[in-house]
Design a binder for these strands. Structure first.
Length: 477
RNA sequence: CGGGAUGUGGCCUAGUGGCUAAGGCGCCUGCUUUGGGAGCAGGAGACCGCCGGUUCGAAUCCGGCCAUCCCGACCA
């Protein structure tokens, strides 16, 4: 357990894997591309879940659960959907020792089974909107997997809503994108860009896909959440209609939106360092750890003094008192840094004499000495400071590595060099997008909102034609 | 799915045809320690990734497979 982590500067991928394995967030499982989420990783997911779930409830959604198995024929009802997902589906062909009449697909996402049910549940405009979310696992047969970022099976939430009008469904799509933005920035301390996806990056079956897009420490982009306006595509495929107030029979309008355990990967790659995981206080399962330091002749007194300080911490601060006798203080320091606890409280004989304690920040390593009576308030304040400064640091890093460029050669130099985000005018032509990908491996991450005006009068960076969008290009996970 | 690298107790590594596979870390027992991954003594733990082949003899040579990483292809 006391081994070193590959430095980021030496090998970013190895560093990432080391953090996941050594901080015991996850471990490889026997089936290719699958992993076990260990208690320390799952605790992070649970904190994400509870924050998100509260936000979903606040916006009027209810949780439900739909089955893992979907009749294969369901997937085929929506043309783009089947084309997008069929290649990565696992299919169950046998059950109970017999070949099944109809193969069952293990859900890669649940639109089809959900809309088959919505058909039964929706008749009138009075049944709308229908706002349902589910927490579930899904399976996608990926060729190249990476812990948390892309695994064959993963955990996520998927919201599926039904509305009486296109406007209302569009509002919902953007409302949930905003929920994701808030969650990413306020809880994960990760600044994100919001905007629309280009045609080639859209969800299979959506009219419009929106995303939150974050920058990792290696300057690559990570799509951290998506929200889709599905139009009437699924309502038509599953014949889901409702009678409006004026008696007309109309197809229902739909959205879907999701975030997954990939967020844990985002958290790691946004904040962590060569000493291990760095977790923002709002998501940290343990926010503070007290490490008592004593010699044999003063052990009882130090422990009592430390316990008294611990007793003054409010219940709202999630604190662990590490009085394990078998490990040295130095060992504990390193271990708690590895797992990312935001604040360490060191309490030894010298502190006891002076009626104080030492607080250490995980993000900067900075140590401060505070009077015993102030520990509770200082720890609370420090947690808030760390939360804020992680965000500011990540934002400063992203801004430093975001370049507005209107010359194609320069764009190639940047994207093939240090990387980062390139903001450039684009005419909307997929051919140009494809050429950029070929030349630089970068894709359009988002078409940021409110930039159509800025595009007017500019020339597309690749074709030279009049630009329609301002696009953000980057290499991505 | 293509190209490359790697695979030896839980982890890292030595051993490159010949005795009972060696060391460090970790683990267990005891003592001693404790302000940045402590010390001493004793102990447990390996069908050398898996399957097959060559050989009197294989961790070592050959073939296949599997897994991980890297680079591509593919992919919300």
């Amino acid at each position: 357990m006391a081994e070193s982590i590959t430095p980021r500067s030496q090998d970013y991928s190895e560093w990432y894997v080391d953090i996941v394995l050594k901080a015991q967030l996850a471990d490889y499982s026997p089936v290719k591309g699958t992993m076990v989420i260990r208690p320390r990783g799952y605790a992070l997911w649970e904190r994400m879940q509870s924050a998100l779930d509260a936000m979903f409830k606040e916006t009027g959604h209810q949780n439900a659960y739909f089955p893992l198995l979907i009749p294969e024929s369901f997937l085929q009802k929506e043309a783009e959907h089947v084309e997008g997902f069929a290649p990565e589906c696992a299919v169950v062909t046998h059950g109970g020792g017999e070949k099944l009449d109809e193969p069952l697909v293990i859900r890669p996402t649940s639109e089809t089974i959900i809309w088959s049910m919505y058909k039964k549940w929706i008749q009138s405009y009075r049944d709308l909107p229908l706002l349902i979310n589910q927490w579930a696992n899904v399976l996608r047969w990926e060729k190249r997997t990476r812990l948390f970022l892309r695994t064959t099976e993963f955990l996520w939430q998927e919201g599926h809503t039904a509305h009486a009008s296109a406007e209302e469904a569009r509002e919902e799509t953007l409302r949930m994108l905003e929920v994701y933005r808030r969650f990413a920035e306020e809880y994960m301390a990760i600044p994100v860009l919001t905007g629309a996806k280009s045609e080639s990056e859209k969800f299979a079956g959506a009219i419009d896909t929106y995303a939150i897009e974050a920058m990792m420490q290696d300057r690559k982009a990570l799509q951290a959440g998506t929200s889709h306006f599905l139009g009437q595509n699924f309502a038509k495929a599953f014949d889901v209609t409702f009678q409006s107030a004026d008696g007309q029979l109309e197809h229902v309008w739909a959205t879907s939106w999701g975030v997954s355990t990939r967020l844990i990967g985002a958290l790691i790659m946004a904040h962590s360092d060569d000493n291990g995981l760095v977790v923002p206080p709002k998501l940290a399962p343990t926010q503070a750890v007290i490490v008592p330091i004593y010699k044999n002749d003063n052990k009882a007194e130090v422990l009592e003094y430390a316990a008294r300080i611990r007793g003054e911490l409010p219940d709202s601060i999630r604190c662990v008192f590490d009085d394990d006798e078998n490990n040295s203080p130095g060992w504990k320091f390193a271990e708690w840094e590895l797992v990312g606890v935001p604040v360490r409280i060191e309490i030894g004989p010298r502190d006891m004499e002076k009626g104080q304690a030492v607080l250490v920040r995980r993000d900067t390593g900075e140590k401060t000495t505070v009077a015993a009576r102030e520990v509770a308030s200082r720890v609370g304040a420090l947690l808030e400071e760390i939360q804020a400064s992680l965000f500011e640091r990540a934002k400063a890093f992203r801004d430093e590595n975001t370049h507005e460029i209107d010359d194609y050669e320069q764009m190639k130099t940047v994207l093939n060099g240090d990387g980062g985000f390139v903001i450039a005018p684009w005419d909307g032509d997929p051919a140009g997008e494809a050429r950029i990908k070929e030349d630089t491996k970068a894709t359009i991450r988002v078409l940021p909102f409110g930039n159509e005006d800025r595009a007017s009068g500019k020339r597309c960076i690749v074709s030279g034609n009049p630009a329609k969008h301002i696009a953000v290009f980057a290499r991505a996970y």
